[in-house]
């Protein structure tokens, strides 16, 4: 595959432009001194200043962080167990249960959980959002752990048992450390999915438990204002920093 066709290459450049231009437009207009996102008037930081004074937005950001951290930890534990179980026992029903929420459209998870929470008298709030996020995050952690398990050398466990390690000891001292990169990768995935989630949160959130995506949604529903550009730009910057940090903290460096 080393041949290149100039026509194909320019099409590819065009697709990259399609991917980036919308986001660049958002970022540029966040510094524009006009309420309309239409033409460049002049440079300003006032939308960012307004943002810092927006208590609802700050509260929503804090909620998002709490929810994503709790969901990542709970899904990390349950997903690791599920990943190991899937690899060891290969039960079809467990595979369907763990990967089902990954394959289903978000909206179905959202409305069926709304129904369930109401029927079980679980009040909608931070707790119901966390419970819902864990549901769709388990599968992603399990997949990451399962692929680590598949690459593991079983003779290590046999050697440990020959040397007199109990089942728990060999799990804690051999399996778990070897699985760590998979677990960490899965939990980061869970954190990202949770903090980005709009659809499932939309159906399972109650009064006073607004998250960042919900807050952005209600702002955008009313009017397109440059304040939304400012939040969006900050969020993009945050993801960029997170990804750069993650690539330093990649599985290779964890393997040692």
């Amino acid at each position: 595959m080393r041949r290149r066709n100039p026509l194909v290459t320019s099409a590819a450049v065009g697709v990259y432009a399609f991917l980036y231009i919308p986001l660049i437009v958002v970022a540029i207009f966040s510094f524009n001194d006009s309420r309309l996102n239409a033409e460049w008037v002049g440079f300003t930081m006032k939308w960012y200043r307004q943002l810092i004074e927006n208590d609802a937005m700050l509260q929503a950001a804090a909620n998002s962080l709490i929810i994503a951290s709790c969901a990542a930890i709970a899904a990390g534990v349950l997903g690791t167990l599920a990943g190991v179980a899937l690899h060891r026992f290969r039960q079809k029903w467990l595979t369907a249960l763990v990967l089902g929420p990954v394959a289903m459209p978000d909206i179905l998870i959202g409305v069926s959980l709304l129904l369930t929470f109401m029927l079980m008298n679980i009040s909608l709030g931070m707790m119901s959002i966390i419970l819902a996020h864990v549901t769709f995050c388990i599968g992603f952690v399990a997949m990451a752990v399962q692929s680590r398990m598949a690459g593991m050398d079983d003779s290590l466990l046999e050697a440990a048992r020959d040397l007199g390690a109990s089942q728990w000891q060999s799990f804690r001292l051999i399996t778990l450390p070897l699985l760590m990169p998979g677990i960490v990768a899965g939990m980061m995935m869970a954190f990202t999915l949770s903090i980005d989630d709009f659809v499932v949160t939309f159906f399972t959130a109650g009064v006073g438990s607004s998250t960042l995506p919900l807050e952005i949604y209600s702002m955008v529903k009313i009017a397109v204002t440059p304040e939304v550009n400012a939040v969006s730009t900050l969020l993009m910057l945050l993801t960029l920093i997170l990804i750069t940090a993650l690539s330093r903290f990649s599985p290779q460096s964890l393997r040692s």
Partner: peptide, 27 residues
């Protein structure tokens, strides 16, 4: 990575970007 990068910005931010581009006052 450059294909995935925009995908990691928030879902609503990506929709919002198109609301600006398609807006009646837009270029």
């Amino acid at each position: 990575l450059m294909v995935i990068l925009p995908f990691w910005s928030n879902f609503l931010v990506r929709i919002y970007a198109w609301m600006i581009i398609f807006s009646p006052q837009g270029a």
